[in-house]
Structure formats: C-alpha cells, structure tokens
Design a protein around this nucleic acid. Sequence first.
DNA 1: ATCTAGCTTTACGTTAACGTAAACGTTAGG
DNA 2: CCTAACGTTTACGTTAACGTAAAGCTAGAT
Lengths: 126, 126
Amino acid sequence: MTTAYSIRDLAQEFSVTTRTLRFYEEKGLLKPSRNKQTRSYSNADRTRLRLILRGKRLGLSLEESSDIILMYKSTSGNQQQLERLLDKIREKRQQLLQQQEDLKLMLADLQDSEARCLAALNPTHP
Amino acid sequence: MTTAYSIRDLAQEFSVTTRTLRFYEEKGLLKPSRNKQTRSYSNADRTRLRLILRGKRLGLSLEESSDIILMYKSTSGNQQQLERLLDKIREKRQQLLQQQEDLKLMLADLQDSEARCLAALNPTHP
DNA sequence: ATCTAGCTTTACGTTAACGTAAACGTTAGG
DNA sequence: CCTAACGTTTACGTTAACGTAAAGCTAGAT
C-alpha cells in the first residue's frame, strides 16, 4: 500500500508545525513529491521523520540525525567507503553508550532526590 | 579538604573554555568566590559543572540542568512546594525513561546497520 | 621600570532550529 | 462569482549557547 500524507497529516500526527516539515525538507531530510505544487509525503518520509524526532529527543542535531539515517540505508559503495562508514557507526554507538551511562546516573540521582523529598514530606516513617 | 580551583584548572579538566565557565556563572549555574577579582571555584562548583555537562550530553538545556541541580539540593520548603517538586522530579524521570527507550531503539538500528555493512564488506560468510 | 602572562569586563558576532508575517495561487462550497 | 480554507514561496525575527575581539588590571620575572 502506497499511502500518501499531506503536510498537515504529518504535522498533526507528530505534533510539529508545517514550518518544521518545510524546514526539514530545505535541509534535505525529507523529500516529498509534488501534486501540482502541493507536497505529498510517502511512508519513507514518515519513517525518516520519526527517526529525526527520535534523534531530537536524544539531543542530536538535525545533521547528526541525517547522518544516522544515511547509515541505515548505505550498504553500497566501495570497500574504502564501507570501512569509513563502519567507523562512523561504531563512533556513534560509543557516543550513545556514553549517553546511556549518563542516563543511568541521572536517573539514580533523581531517585535519591525523590527519596529525600518523600522523607521531608513524611518524617515519621519506619 | 577545601580545595579551590582556578578558572583554567576547571576549564582544562572538563575540556571547556573559560568563556563557557563565565557564561555559566552569568546564567547562575556556578557561583565561584573571588580572590580579589579572580574567580575561585569550590568543590561544589566542580560538581555542578559535572552535572551540567552530563546534562548537555543528554541533550538538556542549561535551564533544564539547572532545574535538576536544584532538585538535588531541595529538601526544604513547605508541603506545597515539596509536592510540586515531587511532581517535577517524576516528570523528568518520565522524560528520561522515554529517552532510554529511544536510545535502545537507536542502538538496535545501529547494530543492524553495522551488520549490513559487514555483510557488504564480506559477502562470502557463513 | 618594563614586560609578559593570566585574569577581568564589555560588547558585538555566530549558528541551529525554527517562528512569524506578508503576499500570492487554487479549489470546494454557498 | 465570491470567499474561506489550505497550500505555496520569500524573507526577516528570535533564542540558546557560546565564540571572538578589544581594552584594561595586576602580579611576578627580567
């Protein structure tokens, strides 16, 4: 099924503005086709948008998300290019693993904060 | 032991510029004392800086990191304030848990990419 | 005394990621 | 036919998080 989405469809579904979608297109992150001027987004566009927004939630820049999306598709190229790609993939993973560490620490700290907060609210507790 | 750090000490240790440290102070995130004009950073400042940078790696804004740091220290206030704080703590945690989900997904995707990349490099593999 | 190294403040510049507004085309409904 | 609703392009505005440069203070070395 080759579903197509209007710009408003996508904007509403992902809670972004149409300006944002046009901006992403301007930056080369989305490539909707045109129905006589009007943009028409494919499932591939929709998936890319999901990945971009996921990246955003992780604090990645649009360029970083763009890079990662390219990694997903790249299985082509000569050996030289593939090995450079492999390096980039592994580098990104290292960064994400570092983030995972940071996340655990911050969650633990929040846990502490909550505990102290509860203790302050309810001092007479077993 | 009440160690003190110069602005250059801290900048080098955390690989940031002195401008960054002054900027964080301007924003109220650090509060170094003064030795006759010159800034002198305490262990508390150093810890706050660590937390700020951890937040940055997770994609938090300075304001968000600032909020979280305040959560760590706040055990005071009346019941009203404590309960609002508790809400904020739990909200932040929810956000971090979402991030954790996103992280897992992205790591899995990268894993896939790496596998396809290796397959393309070494087609004749069991 | 002078020079240098490192600190200071002040202030303007820069980049990413959109927001906002103006001006215009087009298509479905009354 | 007119307008209301959505789409388009163009272009200037905005915010966060610093970078960069100018101008000056000060303590130690030469």
